[in-house]
Design a protein around this nucleic acid. Structure first.
Length: 196
DNA sequence: CCAACGATGGTCT
DNA sequence: GACCATCGTTGGC
């Protein structure tokens, strides 16, 4: 009873984003991504690091595309992948580091009808169980790039629950595929891939 | 069930 | 011109 309504409106603090990238990738699990009336629980993330991570967009220096990654923590980095889909990241680390956390999957919570319409399917498990799917369901595109999450149209809301976290290699990379930098809520059926 | 493949266009060399 | 932090479909079992 209680707190469902109250918890909904509590954003994380600015301090929340100022933790090391891997810690943030883990801390984001169980939190809520909120965009207008849409709301989803974050169930899967990946960390992208500056040092010794050839899979990171920032690993070969600043370019026009990856510039948001070198900004301050708590901003978005949205880019187009395979000419069709967008990926949503949350910039992390210290300014100039070039690190970020990729949001890979959500458990749909509110605004499910709109998600179903945009994704052209009713099946809940198929609405947000992948980085390209969740941006489609939430209507996230390049216009959402390089925006501050605090007080913006995209927000992260808090949750007190501490989910049980499982790790694996990251998905879909050629370089840096061996690193154990994927994090997801154990047993959650909205995760993009359960094996590995 | 699952492996293979094509779509599609921005980004960087 | 090659690469790509993906996804839906297809065709096999």
């Amino acid at each position: 009873m209680d707190t469902e309504a109250a918890v909904k409106k509590v954003q994380v603090t600015k301090r929340f984003f100022n933790q090391p990238t891997i810690a943030l990738a883990r801390a984001l699990l169980g939190k809520y991504l909120v965009c207008g009336k849409l709301r989803g629980k974050i169930v899967e993330t990946e960390a992208y690091l500056y040092r010794d991570d050839p899979g990171c967009h920032a690993s070969r220096g600043l370019t026009p595309r990856n510039a948001p990654m070198f900004g301050s923590a708590g901003r978005t980095y949205v880019y187009l992948i395979y000419g069709m889909y967008h990926c949503l990241n949350i910039v992390s680390g210290k300014e100039g580091d070039g690190e970020a956390v990729l949001i890979r999957a959500l458990e749909p919570v509110e605004g499910i009808e709109l998600m179903q319409k945009r994704r052209k399917t009713k099946k809940l498990e198929n609405l947000c169980n992948g980085p390209g799917k969740l941006t489609q369901a939430f209507g996230i595109n390049k216009k959402y790039n390089n925006l501050a999450l605090l007080d913006g149209k995209l927000q992260i809301h808090d949750s007190r629950k501490k989910p049980e976290i499982q790790t694996s290699r990251r998905i879909g990379l050629s370089a840096g595929k061996e690193l154990e930098l994927r994090f997801f809520i154990k047993g959650n059926r909205f995760v993009s891939k359960l094996d590995l």
